[in-house]
Design a protein around this nucleic acid. Structure first.
Lengths: 199, 199, 199, 199
DNA sequence: CCTTAAGCGAGACGGTACGTCCAGTCTTTTA
DNA sequence: TAAAAGACTGGACGTACCGTCTCGCTTAAGG
């Protein structure tokens, strides 16, 4: 590593080229087959410059993702939690179906062996978005649209974990069109539906 | 690789030592920091012998896991699906909290870059157990304990994906004691509970 | 470095190719412009293999020289020290005019910064040949052809240092035809010659 | 390199500090272990400034040597060539025993790979001093103290090459007290001394 | 019983990428 | 406009593993 460089003097062109090269190469060859040397070459940067600003390929990929998806997209709030979650989960599913999905899978993979990657992953991606989602869910609870006795954090996990399960295990297709049905299952539960009251 | 070795002449002692070394080393140092050379040394085997029987570290780890957990544990069937799933999910959670969890996370990580690892993972671990679970769920559906209009495959994902989410992201503690409450959420759904009918 | 490899299992073909590549490349590009990577590539060897057997480029070059010039050429002994030294010094001059000269200059250069190279240079090249020369000079002293009050080691230095001076500084041409005159100067000294006795 | 800087605006303090740092660091760590970056840091100069005025570490070292030893010391002329050479060679030996010796060895080393360093070395150090020495030797020849049929350039080499041989190979100690005996060998030659005429 | 062919431990090999270091250039700021 | 500071490209360094390859040694089977 390099001793505490000065961020003000950083070359922005080199930074952008490096992050772009990271996504391009990973999307094209797969995370595991991309080396830092290849990224450096593709970006027209030197390895030293990369190591000056990022400690690992995973850190690079993580920043590339964050740059790509931009500011923490505000959670939609139309007043109806079902509508809003459908929108949101579909968007996430869409995103993970494209090149970012490949990059993301690689970062999650590296996080399994490198705790600092796991921490960075949680801090820069998972937790901020989880908190936004929790806030929206809390509002829905307050509006009487959701149970008050289920921790919002657990709700978030119930809503999103299936997406990651499919992303990582490849057992089922990631398809935004499945979102509404899935949400209905989560909201209504798996118990048999009671007979509708007759009018 | 070596051209089709003869499994009958295989040295069982060497095989066991290798699988044991795999789990020990991965549990001790983490999946990513364990090399095949280290496993060979620890097992008193030669690298050649390992490559003769396993194509990759992930394949080795996968077989080590399967050997460790033994026969596909039959899904319990007490007649009550809640009881049975509580038992089963708690057991899985327990397992993934120990050394096998570390090995498993490594295999999942490698599966993200190597499709053949993904396939092997699904075929030897995920799918067989998923099918057992689906069968039990189908029985519960038939017994009127679960909705008939939700694919059992989706039910399995809803029940287990949260465990893997926590395992891989480390956002929440893996704790078997949380299983009953979680099951209640999944079965009853997140909508507010209707007021109990007065007696 | 690699932990004490077993010389018996060494690949002789690889060793020869590496030493040959060393001389070829240094002769073609100059010592300083040759990298170990280039030698490895040219020899069809891997860097690791080179580092397994040689600690540095200089060590490689030194062994290449020794292999090239073969066994310590016995010092000639015709009975006449002038004849023998003429032969010997001319041969050394010839050798240093060719590719070996370039390699040799590089090793001497590295010896200035790396004491272990200096030691190896003395032990494998300088000292063995110095001792052979001293032995021949001692015989000449015993035969009354040379002064007995000058240490043979100093004689060796007086006889050979000019060759290295010219090799390293490039102040004067290295030309074997200059050897007889030079020897006459060293043997007779720089003082004016006394007038010959008339017959 | 920078296109022809204006020497008049040069910062003399920076120049001195750089040359001083060069000698200090090389004396302390050895020529090969000193980098231009280290010299810049030690001198409180920037790398750019160093590259503006010197093309290489060797050029820097060469100028440092020349600054250190000051004006080309005039060759002494007492009328007796033996006395004068003893003085001169002893001084050179003394100089090369100290820090300048280490710097000098480094420059000679670099000259083996970089012809421009060799040229600079000859032009700024070797040749000027050689010419002074040749002039003194020519005077001695004219005075009948030395042979007229030996080129003075060869005499210079015979007188000084042994010093460099010992400096570069480290085969023998550089000791000014050995100078008189050595001179006697060179002047009288290695042939056995004829019996002194009886009085 | 004795060959013989396979699996085995050992470890050297060609390769690839690692993360570091320094050369030499370029840019920004200060005096 | 020189100089200090230091980020930059480029490229070699020496290391670590990969997956392949010989090499003897052991071991079980078949002639």
């Amino acid at each position: 590593m390099v001793p505490t460089p000065n961020p003000e003097r950083r070359n922005e062109r080199s930074r952008r080229a490096t992050l772009a090269a990271t996504i391009e190469l990973i999307a094209a060859r797969g995370y595991g087959k991309v080396t830092i040397e290849a990224i450096a070459t593709q970006a027209g940067a030197s390895k030293q410059t990369i190591y000056r600003w990022w400690p690992s390929k995973a850190a690079l990929a993580l920043e590339a993702i964050n740059d790509y998806i931009g500011e923490a997209i505000d959670f939609p709030d139309t007043g109806d939690i079902t509508t809003d979650l459908t929108t949101q989960i579909s968007e996430v599913t869409d995103l993970l179906t494209g090149p970012i999905g490949t990059v993301f899978r690689g970062v999650i993979a590296d996080a399994q062996s490198d705790p600092s990657v796991g921490a960075a992953l949680r801090e820069t991606i998972i937790e901020p978005r989880t908190r936004l989602c929790e806030a929206r869910l809390a509002a829905a609870v307050a509006a009487g649209q959701l149970r008050a006795d289920v921790p919002t954090r657990v709700m978030v996990e119930m809503l999103y974990s299936v997406v990651y399960y499919r992303l990582l295990f490849g057992t089922d297709e990631l398809d935004p069109r499945k979102t509404p049905a899935f949400l209905e299952y989560v909201f209504t539960g798996l118990r048999p539906l009671p007979p509708r009251a007759e009018p």
